[in-house]
């Protein structure tokens, strides 16, 4: 347990060194947020799309911009591609700790950093600009906590899969671009997935990207209840199994080919 904790702390500290330049990213995120909010205000001014009124969408955009830094804007491939390239990965895999857990917990340090130095400042900016939605039902709070945790975990697993692909290809960048594109359009970022044109709306519901932003946002805005956690939870189990089986395959590959 201690090792995982130590790695997370190190990742947090590493990020701390760059917090000045991260503020520049924050400002950029805020600008993007304002653009999308303005688009929604202009589109949904007269009649919103059912439950998605102009006011709801302003908070939707604000919430997803904040969540992006916890579940989507994570280190590409969680640093695994570099470790594979330099060969450091064989050392990491030989350690008597679980590799999947090791990488995930290390990057939890990054997520924790992002929560304080990226999401929180952004949330404050948006709170001043469009106000804060305060959930009315007490049950929303534990549900939201679960939804956010699932979102972070799924986001990390998706980056982990990108990273582990570098055992088989030198172009892990491609895997990242594909995953990133899906995370942008099928996650509910900017547009709730049920508003996407038909084939895409079904696709988005089925794939593990909606649990990153769409489901937490609906719970936060109290448009959905506990039932919205079922699908993310199922995906969390599935992705865990996939990650672990690929890790085992990667380890075998490493043992056979020596890196």
């Amino acid at each position: 347990m201690g090792a995982y904790w130590l790695l997370a702390k190190k990742a947090f500290r590493r990020n701390m060194q760059y917090r000045a330049s991260h503020m520049v990213n924050n400002a950029a995120s805020a600008i993007f947020g304002f653009i999308y909010i303005a688009v929604w205000q202009a589109a949904a001014r007269n009649a919103g799309a059912g439950e998605y009124t102009a006011a709801v969408m302003a908070r939707w955009v604000a919430f997803t911009q904040v969540m992006l830094w916890l579940a989507v804007f994570l280190p590409h491939g969680l640093g695994i591609p570099e470790a594979v390239r330099t060969g450091a990965v064989s050392l990491e895999m030989l350690r008597p700790v679980d590799f999947h857990l090791l990488v995930i917990s290390r990057e939890l340090g990054t997520v924790w950093y992002n929560a304080w130095f990226r999401s929180l400042p952004l949330a404050l900016v948006f709170a001043l600009a469009v106000g804060v939605h305060v959930p009315q039902r007490p049950a929303t709070y534990p549900l939201l906590a679960c939804a956010v945790l699932l979102s972070v975990y799924l986001g990390l697993c998706q980056q982990y899969l990108v990273g582990i692909s570098s055992f088989w290809t030198v172009q892990a960048r491609w895997a990242w671009q594909l995953v990133n594109t899906c995370q942008m359009v099928l996650s509910g970022f900017m547009v709730p997935i049920d508003l996407l044109p038909p084939p895409f709306s079904y696709l988005a519901r089925a794939l593990p990207f909606a649990p990153l932003l769409y489901d937490p946002a609906r719970i936060y805005l109290e448009l959905s209840g506990a039932e919205a956690l079922a699908w993310p939870a199922i995906w969390a189990v599935l992705l865990t199994l996939i990650c672990r089986s690929l890790t085992a395959k990667a380890r075998r590959r490493l043992e056979v080919q020596g890196g």
């Binding site: 202009a42 589109a43 799309a49 594109t181 900017m190 508003l195 044109p197």
Partner: peptide, 29 residues
């Protein structure tokens, strides 16, 4: 080939978001 496909996917995704909003609301500003 792959770069063409990936960049195509990205621009299509970008258009999809605009289309979702415009098809639903018909007018923006």
């Amino acid at each position: 080939l792959v770069n063409t496909l990936l960049w195509g996917a990205l621009t299509t995704a970008d258009f999809l978001m605009l289309a979702a909003i415009m098809l639903r609301f018909e007018r923006v500003g």
